[in-house]
Structures are given as structure tokens and as C-alpha cells.
Amino acid sequence: MRRWGLTVPLTGVPLPQHRELIERLPDLGYTDAWSAETAGTDAFSPLLLASQWAPRLRLGTAIVPVYTRGPGVIAMSAATLAECAPGKFVLGIGASSPVIVENWNAGAFTEPYARTRDTLRFLRAALAGEKVTEEYPTFSVSRFRLERPADPAPPIMLAALRPGMLRLAAREADGAITNWFAPADVPKVRAEVGPDLELVARIFVCPTEDADAARKLGRLLISSYLTVPVYRAFHDWLGRGEVLAPMHEAWAAGDRKKANAVIPDEVVDELIVHGSPERCRETLQSYVDNGLTTPVISLLPTGGDPLEQVEALAPR
């Protein structure tokens, strides 16, 4: 079954006002609603509402950071949502970034691969209802058992950018979640996870024919995200190291304006989907044609009505 997802909540729309839109998503052709967690809503609350508003939707977190909650709290939150959306919830977890973990949540961003692996293994056991006592390399758990394990237990997907984490997802998880790549990059990522694993990606979509406005917004996002070390390494691996080097140099020198200005149009056009709704849909489909399983639209503000744009971007 072809999947077509939407990131919720939409920017600028109060969470309670999403009900009418989310109720309509299945009839518009959307199969999935995925949440994010940075400094806006938490990952679980929007999906809990969506589970009651549109029970046909599959719901997923993309992602829950493994450092900002204890392992047991992640398990409890996931089991609660899985109980409210039986068979329709996917738990996406990942390392997140030093900014979110250390600067905003007073954690220590150490051994991200190992911490993500250990959290995955704990959650696999805990969500199955097992009593867990284990000395993992990055943390220990003693006699934890969920009082309300969901049946069925939710699938677990891993946020992954580079080969090591992608291969971990292929070995031990039920899918991989990635972002910030172009349709032409999908085969390289797909090659690391194999042909059968579900590959989910959040894709930034700016449905406007004002290319200058879309590129201006895209440059702001690219310089903010791709200067983060994990994303820089990702794009070095994808082959954009040389073309993005001027941006990194300007950013390191503290010249944010220049960092934006030196990002080439072609890089923005590769990483930000923009144009008419029809053109945006065609580009999203090109991701799928190249091996992506589940495109998840992250709608960027254009000044237009976001609810109308979600309808216009629905699959045809």
C-alpha cells in the first residue's frame, strides 16, 4: 500500500483546531500523521488527539530523542499511545542533536549510536511486557515492567542518517527514518537498509510558485540544520561536502548572512520541494519512485492557508 504522510501539528494552527483537518485526512488520501519534537509540541500529544479524531490513520513519532526521557518513560508513553491506537502506532526514536539534548534539556550527548541501540533493545523487551533487568553499555535498568503493555506492541523505527545507524535499523528495528535529502539521494540510503525495510522521510514542502521566497526560506533552514555536525557528516557522505563548504566556512566565522547567501540555488532546489501543488506532488512521487516507502510532508509557511495547502498536496 502506498503511504502519504503529514507532519502535525501545522505551523501557526492551534492544536485543538486541527480536529476537522485530521478527521478529513484519510478521505483526502493521507495514510499517516507523524509528529516531531524539538521545541514545539511534544511528540506524543498531537498523535494522542489524532488517534481519537481519525482512527484510520497510522501515527508515528519522528522522533522521540533517547536522551530527553528515561527509558521507562519512553516505554510508558509509547504503550499509552499504542493502547489508544491499537495496531496504528509506530514509535520512532533517535539520538537527536547536541543542541536539543545538551543546550535545551541539560543532558549529555555521548555515544549516540550506543545509546540509541541500547534504548531500542530495552524498548523491544519492555513493550513486549517483559520484566527488564539489564546492564546495557550506556545505562542500566532494574526490574522494570510496564503495568499496561499494549497488544500489539508498536513497531520501533530508528532515525538514521549514515551507514552505521542505517544498518542498525536494518538489523534490529522495523524501519528507518531520515530527512534532509534529495530524490537522487534515496538509492544511496536505500542501499544501506536493503530493499524490504520501510524507509520514512520527512520532506520540507513549500507550495508556492514564488521561487525566490521559497529559496530564501530554504536557505535559512539549510544553514540552521546542515551546519549541525551530524547533518554536515550526512551531506559529506551524500557528496555535498564541497558545494556546502563555503556555507560552513561562513557559519564558523559567525557570518550568518553570508552563510545563507553562498548556498547555491541548486542545493536549495534539491532539498526543499517547492512550486505549484502539482509540481510538489510530482517531486514527492519521485522520492517514492527512487525507493522511499513513506514520504511525510513537513509544510513550510508561505502566507497561504495551510489547511487548503494540505488538501492541495493530497495524493491524486
Score class of each variant (00 low, 15 high):
Ile74Trp: 05
Gly72His: 05
Val296Ile: 15
Gly72Phe: 06
Leu197Pro: 02
Pro149Ala: 09
Glu270Ser: 15
Phe234Thr: 04
Thr133Ala: 03
Gln285Asn: 10
Pro306Ala: 05
Phe144Asp: 05
Val228His: 08
Glu209Arg: 08
Tyr231Trp: 08
Leu307Gln: 14
Asp196Pro: 00
Asn105Thr: 06
Val73Asp: 02
Asp185Arg: 08
Glu172Lys: 09
Ser77Tyr: 05
Met165Ala: 15
Pro137Asn: 11
Asp174Lys: 02
Ala253Asn: 07
Glu102Gln: 15
Ala252Cys: 00
Thr133Leu: 09
Ser51Gly: 12
Leu158Thr: 01
Gly275Tyr: 07
Arg121Ser: 11
Thr11Arg: 13
Pro155Lys: 02
Val288Arg: 13
Leu25Ala: 07
Leu6Phe: 10
Leu284Arg: 03
Thr80Ala: 14
Ala33His: 11
Ala114Pro: 00
Leu57Thr: 04
Ala253Tyr: 00
Gly70Ile: 01
Gly92Ala: 09
Gly12Asn: 01
Leu123Val: 10
Leu161Val: 04
Pro195His: 12
Leu271Glu: 05
Glu147Lys: 13
Trp180Phe: 03
Ser97Leu: 11
Lys88Gly: 09
Phe89Gly: 03
Leu313Pro: 03
Pro183Glu: 01
Pro9His: 13
Ala78Phe: 08
Thr7Cys: 15
Arg171Asn: 09
Leu226Tyr: 14
Pro152Asn: 13
Gly254Leu: 07
Ala160Leu: 12
Thr133Phe: 02
Gly239Ser: 03
Asn105Arg: 13
Arg69Cys: 03
Ala173Cys: 07
Val73Glu: 00
Gly303Ile: 05
Arg58Gln: 11
Val64Trp: 01
Pro55Trp: 07
Tyr30Gln: 04
Gly72Thr: 15
Thr31Pro: 01
Ala191Gly: 04
Ile156Trp: 06
Gly254Asn: 11
Leu292Val: 11
Trp34Ala: 07
Asp118Cys: 13
Asp185Gly: 10
Gly291Thr: 07
Arg2Trp: 04
Phe144Ala: 10
Arg124Lys: 14
Val268Thr: 07
Ile22Trp: 10
Val141Pro: 04
Met1His: 13
Glu172Gln: 15
Asp27Gly: 15
Arg240Met: 01
Gln17Gly: 10
Phe109Thr: 04
Glu37Phe: 05
Ala211Cys: 02
Arg190Cys: 10
Ala39Asn: 14
Thr227Lys: 06
Val243Arg: 11
Glu147Asn: 12
Arg279Phe: 04
Thr61Ile: 06
Ser45Arg: 04
